[in-house]
Simulated scan of single mutants.
Amino acid sequence: MSAIVYAVPGRPPAPPANPWPGMRMTWTGWDGSEWDLTDPEASGVSLQAGVRGLLMPPFRRHTTSSPAVAGSRPRGYSTDERPVFWPVKVFQDTSSQDWIDHDAAFWRTLAPGRTGVWTVTQPSGRSRSLRCRFEELQDGLDIDPSLMGWVVYGITLVAEEPFWTGEPVTRQFVPSTTVPFFPGPPFGISEGSLSTSAAIDNPGDEPAYLSWWLHGPTTGTFGVGGRVIDVPFEVAPGRTLVLDSAPTVRGAREIDTPPAGLSPQQETTWVSERLRTAAVDRTKDLGATSKWGAVPAGTAVPLSVAAVGTGALRASLLPQHYRAW
C-alpha cells in the first residue's frame, strides 16, 4: 500500500511592483501641516481634473523692431509670476461637524498673507517644490457641504517666484584636521589655503544662486566662477555667517551656529528660522570689491575658497526648473 505524503505548499512569488505608481503631490501649509493631494484616503483632500501650474511658466519676450527691417530682433525674455489653479475636493464622511473641522483646518493653510509649498515627488524619490500664495476662490455653493461630507473648490494661487526648485546641490569644506560638520563628501582645506578643485553643478533650467554658510572661526573670500565675496572680518566661534546671492535676499546675515546632530532638513529649517527672527545684518561689513555670482544652467563651475580659520564652510544652490518634473 503506497503512502501519501502531504507537503506544505511553497509560497507564491510576490506580485511584481506596479511600474506606473504615478507622482505624489503634497501641500505643506505655512503652519507646517502636510496634506497629500493625490491619495484621497490619506488626507481627505484630493486634486481633480484641470490642475494648472505644473508645466511651463509664463514667459515674456522682449524684442525690438524697425519699419525698415522685416520682423523683429530678440532682446531676451523675462518670466512672470506663475498662476496656479487647483480644483480640489475636500471630504470627510464621519459626521457634519467632523467635515466642518476638517475643511477649516485645510483652509487655515491658505492665508493670503503667508505661503505654503506644493511638492511633486517622482517614483524615484526626486522632488521639486513651488512656493505658492492663496489668491482667489471661485465662490458659490449649491448645497450645504456639511450635509454631503464633501465639496469641490476652485482655488487660484500664485507663485511669485515662478520656477520649481529641485533638491539642493551642496559642497562642503572642512579644516583637514576636523571631522566633517555636514553630511556628504567634504573637501579639506588648511589654514590660509586656496581650493579650486571643487566644482558645483546646476542641473536646472535657469541660473542658480549660491548660499554660503561660514561657521566661525573663519574669514576669507568665497565665490564661484571668478566672482568672489570678501569677508574681511572674522566670524566668531559659535556664530555662522550666511551669504545669500539670490537677488531677492542678497546680503550677509549672522546667526548662532546650528547645534550638532541635526539632519540636513532640520538644519536648514533651523537656519531659516534664525534668519527670520534673530539675524544680524553684516552686508555693509563685506569688502568693497565683493561680487555676487550665479551658476549658469546646465553647467558645473569651480568654487573659489580662500579661507583662514578652523570653521566649516558650506556652499549650496537650489536648481530652478521650468516644470514640476
Rank of each mutant, 00 (worst) to 15 (best):
Ser65Ile: 02
Gly44Cys: 04
Thr38Gln: 07
Glu34Ile: 14
Arg52Leu: 11
Asp80Met: 15
Ser72Arg: 12
Trp35Pro: 04
Arg73Met: 09
Ser43Tyr: 01
Leu47Glu: 09
Leu55Lys: 04
Trp35Tyr: 10
Trp35Ser: 09
Arg73Asp: 11
Trp30Ala: 15
Gly29Met: 13
Glu41Phe: 14
Arg60Gln: 12
Gly50Asp: 01
Ser72Phe: 04
Arg73Asn: 12
Val45Cys: 08
Pro74Asn: 11
Pro57Met: 11
Ser66Trp: 02
Pro67Met: 04
Arg82Leu: 09
Gly44Tyr: 01
Leu54Gln: 06
Leu37Ile: 02
Ser72Val: 12
Leu47Lys: 10
Gly32Trp: 08
Val69Ile: 15
Ala70Leu: 15
Pro40Tyr: 11
Thr63Glu: 10
Leu55Pro: 00
Ser65Val: 03
Val51Phe: 06
Ser33Val: 14
Arg73Glu: 13
Gln48Phe: 04
His62Met: 13
Gly44Val: 04
Pro40Gly: 08
Thr64Met: 03
Pro40Arg: 15
Gly50Glu: 03
Glu81His: 05
Leu55Thr: 02
Leu37Gly: 01
Gly44Asn: 04
Asp39His: 05
Asp31Gln: 13
Glu41Pro: 00
Asp36Pro: 04
Phe85Gln: 05
Pro58Gly: 07
Pro67Thr: 08
Glu34Cys: 09
Tyr77Cys: 03
Ala49Pro: 01
Glu34Asn: 10
Gly50Trp: 03
Gly53Glu: 01
Tyr77Pro: 00
Asp36Met: 12
Arg75Ala: 08
Gly71His: 13
Val45Ser: 03
Tyr77Glu: 12
Trp30Pro: 08
Ser33Thr: 15
Arg73His: 12
Gly44Thr: 05
Glu41Ala: 15
Arg60Cys: 06
Pro40Thr: 09
Leu54Phe: 09
Thr38Ile: 09
Asp39Ala: 08
Leu55Asn: 05
Pro58Tyr: 03
Gly50Ser: 04
Leu54Cys: 00
Glu34Tyr: 00
Thr64His: 01
Val84Cys: 12
Val84Pro: 09
Asp39Ser: 14
Ser46His: 07
Val51Ser: 00
Glu41Ser: 14
Tyr77Val: 07
Arg60Ser: 10
Ser65Lys: 06
Pro74His: 10
Thr38Asp: 01
Ser65His: 03
Pro74Cys: 09
Ser66Cys: 13
Leu47His: 06
Asp39Gly: 04
Met56Gln: 07
Gly50His: 01
Thr63Asp: 06
Thr38Val: 12
Ser66Asn: 14
Gln48Asp: 13
Leu47Gln: 08
Phe59Pro: 00
Pro74Glu: 12
Leu37Cys: 03
Leu37Val: 02
Gly29Leu: 11
Trp30Val: 04
Asp80Gly: 14
Asp80Tyr: 08
Thr38Met: 14
Val45Ala: 12
Phe85Glu: 11
